[in-house]
């Protein structure tokens, strides 16, 4: 079966769902961040798929430009999140998300 947009959308949805599952079921904050990265990657696969097979109303390759933006923003997000994790670890000596419950009333 030749590759079409459907195949890529399936891969994209699978990656996104695995990311969602990890985000909901893991407790380690670092693993949560990695799950978010998985979700970003799923979206990127869809964007590249549409750039390749889709019908663009803007310009050719605009899907790729979008994917570039997604990668950039993911990098920025990781930088800030890692800094936050460092601060949290300094204060609480843990990065387990269920133990960081200072805001709980």
């Amino acid at each position: 079966m030749t590759i079409g947009i459907t195949h890529l959308l399936v891969v994209s949805a699978a990656l996104f769902c695995v990311g969602v599952f990890g985000l909901l079921s893991r407790r380690n904050a670092i693993a949560l961040l990695m799950s978010v990265e998985l979700m970003f990657n799923g979206v990127n696969v869809a964007l590249v798929g549409f750039a390749r097979f889709g019908y663009s109303n803007l310009r050719p390759l605009s899907g790729m430009a979008f994917a570039l933006f997604v990668i950039t923003i993911a990098a920025a997000e990781v930088a800030v999140a890692v800094a936050l994790l460092l601060v949290a670890y300094r204060r609480h000596q843990t990065v387990q998300a269920d133990e960081l419950d200072e805001l709980r009333g």
């Binding site: 990265e37 390749r52 790729m64 990668i71 990098a75």
Partner: peptide, 18 residues
Amino acid sequence: LNAQFLAAVQVIVYAGAV
């Protein structure tokens, strides 16, 4: 999928820096 530039960026930024 003919996204050579993005493949390079993926390896450099994601697999490298992140």
